[in-house]
């Protein structure tokens, strides 16, 4: 299972790199979604994959039951997903704005900030 997930991570990163280097904003965004999922998988696998119960404490006891899953990677991934969601929303809005204001979706054609003629 670990090996399978590691391979999936690799495929995701490869796909993300391909999309991000395509040079248009929409593809960059899609690549961003892929690569953040890949990173979440890395954290997930880092927390070790075991057969375990959910890390919930029932009302009778004070600590998690024996054999409960490691809840830290889940907390980390949840935080990363929330942050990634916020950043993705911002980047989406920015791309839309860039497209309507600069009239192009290709990063190479955006030369407002760094004009080519500089003499």
């Amino acid at each position: 299972m670990d090996i399978l997930l590691t391979l999936v991570t690799g495929v995701l990163v490869a796909g993300a790199s391909y999309l991000m280097m395509a040079g248009t904003l929409v593809r960059f965004l899609l690549g961003l979604v892929l690569i953040s999922n890949a990173v979440n998988l890395i954290i997930f696998v880092s927390g070790r994959l075991t057969y375990a119960g959910p890390p919930l404490i029932d009302s009778a006891s004070k600590t998690v039951a024996e054999g409960a899953a490691n809840s830290l990677p889940q907390a980390l991934i949840l935080t990363a997903i929330v942050i990634g969601f916020g950043l993705f929303a911002f980047t989406l809005a920015l791309s839309l704005r860039a497209y309507s204001q600069l009239g192009t979706d290709a990063a190479d054609e955006m030369r407002e900030a760094e004009p080519e003629d500089r003499t």
């Binding site: 991000m20 690569i35 953040s36 920015l94 791309s95 860039a98 600069l102 990063a107 955006m110 407002e112």
Partner: peptide, 22 residues
């Protein structure tokens, strides 16, 4: 426009960096 343009580059590269950090 110039700020949107600068922001696109800034956002893109910095997002890759924080992803690598994670």
């Amino acid at each position: 426009s110039i700020q949107i343009d600068g922001a696109v580059k800034y956002v893109g590269l910095n997002l890759i960096a924080t992803t690598a950090m994670l």
